[in-house]
Design a binder for these strands. Structure first.
Length: 423
DNA sequence: TCCAAGTCAATAGC
DNA sequence: GCTATTGACTTGGA
């Protein structure tokens, strides 16, 4: 439902059947001969060519709530079905690098948690999906790219600059941009497993270590402090995303029974609620987790945490089953005690997203009626994927807390008043 | 100044 | 050759 509506409205906004590639003058799609002028700046791609960067931004701003999970799912399907790579898709359609695309597709953040900038790729994806011809075009580009590549390889001097759109990804490696070479690139730091372990352990104890702690860690591990700082930033942010996914999946699982396929597939009705609902609410789950730094400095809601939030309330306890993937084990071990400190801060909560889950064409509808999916979203089914009892207990607690929050949110939403997030 | 979000880009792994 | 991972960087808000 909402999906199609979103699509529709977006399309209408754009007023072009295929804004994505089609109109692109600057687009690389065009003539094979055209130097893909635009590639130099990946960030300003092109898809919506007819529109300036501003336009896309406006589009994003006006865009209805989109089901990011569903969109990425469909994009993944289309890409795999047509054997299209992330690089090509990313560089030509989204203006992002392969790594970013991979990340985006694998761990889409809920709409409500995205900033305008973060929503942009999803709007682009949605627009791209709107027109099936776009796939064909991308495939054409792929062919052309391949051709150009062969040409370069086999012809002594390639007469023309290959038009490949992704030239960005290729050209520079070809020495197209000679000068950057001169400055030695910093070798990439690769943390050893033990170092990571140590950092994770430190994280378990203090997700927000003080400068002093960071210093100590850096010394002990023989790393630069900036590396340690970066590591904490990255880890926090990645764990957060990991949780989004987990919640979304938990939601779709518990929902699976009801709807044919939890996935996004065509219908967004179902999942849109997954993603959406989750989005809107999830963040609030962390609200009670106030933190303190080493110094005891309140890590409080720095941003938009609800003013009156009772940060003191007993914390949600468990550090969100922290640790993405492999960490599970690690954290499991150390988790036992970690206590209190969670990487999450209330901040997330209201996060300039007054746009509650309610907003827009949310599937279940903003309104009064509670979308069942909402409730079930956090109701971690007993058996479902439960790894162990403790995990379950933890989940149950979280679910209870989240559901409680959701309940309040829904109540607030149904009042249709500007909501004051007070939790 | 600190942090989150978003991204790049090197690299590991298939 | 492609995707996933991840350290580093940029931007912007508070």
């Amino acid at each position: 439902m909402s999906s199609s509506e979103s699509v529709k409205s977006l399309t209408e906004l754009v007023q072009q059947p295929c804004p994505a590639i089609e109109t692109s003058k600057e687009g690389k799609v065009q003539e094979p001969g055209d130097p893909p002028a635009s590639d130099s700046q990946p960030t300003t791609p092109l898809p919506l060519s007819g529109h300036s960067a501003l336009s896309i931004q406006e589009l994003v701003a006006m865009s209805p709530e989109l089901d990011t999970y569903g969109i990425t799912k469909r994009v993944k399907e289309v890409l795999t079905d047509n054997n299209l790579g992330q690089r090509l898709f990313g560089e030509t359609i989204l203006g992002l690098t392969q790594g970013s695309v991979s990340d985006l597709l694998a761990r889409p953040k809920p709409w409500h948690k995205l900033s305008l900038k973060g929503r942009e790729p999803f709007v682009r994806m949605q627009l791209w999906l709107n027109d099936p011809n776009n796939v064909e075009k991308l495939m054409d580009m792929k062919r052309m790219e391949k051709k150009a590549y062969m040409k370069r390889r086999h012809s002594s001097v390639s007469d023309s600059q290959p038009c490949e759109p992704s030239s960005a990804g290729i050209d520079y490696s070809q020495g197209a941009s000679p000068q950057p070479q001169h400055q030695l690139k910093k070798p990439r730091v690769v943390l050893a497993p033990e170092e990571k372990e140590a950092l994770k352990r430190a994280y378990q104890q203090k997700p927000y270590p003080s400068p002093k702690t960071i210093e100590e860690l850096a010394t002990q591990l023989n790393l630069k402090t900036s590396t340690v700082i970066n590591w904490f930033h990255n880890y926090r942010s990645r764990i957060r995303r990991e949780l989004f996914i987990e919640e979304i999946q938990a939601g779709s699982q518990s929902q699976a029974g009801a709807s044919d396929s939890p996935s996004a597939r065509s219908g967004r009705a179902a999942h849109s609620s997954e993603g959406d609902s989750c989005d809107g609410h999830f963040p609030f789950g962390m609200e009670t987790l106030a933190e303190t730094t080493d110094e005891g400095r309140p890590r409080g809601p720095r941003r938009s945490s609800p003013p009156g939030s009772h940060s003191s309330g007993e914390p949600l306890e468990a550090p969100p089953n922290s640790a993405p993937k492999e960490d599970a084990s690690t954290s499991a071990a150390s988790t036992a005690g970690p206590t209190g400190e969670s990487p999450y801060r209330p901040k997330e909560s209201s996060e300039k997203s007054p746009s509650l889950p309610s907003t827009s064409s949310t599937p279940a509808g903003p309104g009064p009626q509670k979308p069942p999916s909402l409730q079930s979203l956090f109701s971690f089914p007993e058996a479902a994927g439960s790894k162990n009892t403790r995990d379950n207990t933890l989940r149950k607690k979280k679910a209870a807390n989240l559901n409680n929050i959701i309940h309040r949110l829904e109540k607030a939403a149904s009042r249709e008043e500007p909501v004051e997030w007070e939790f």
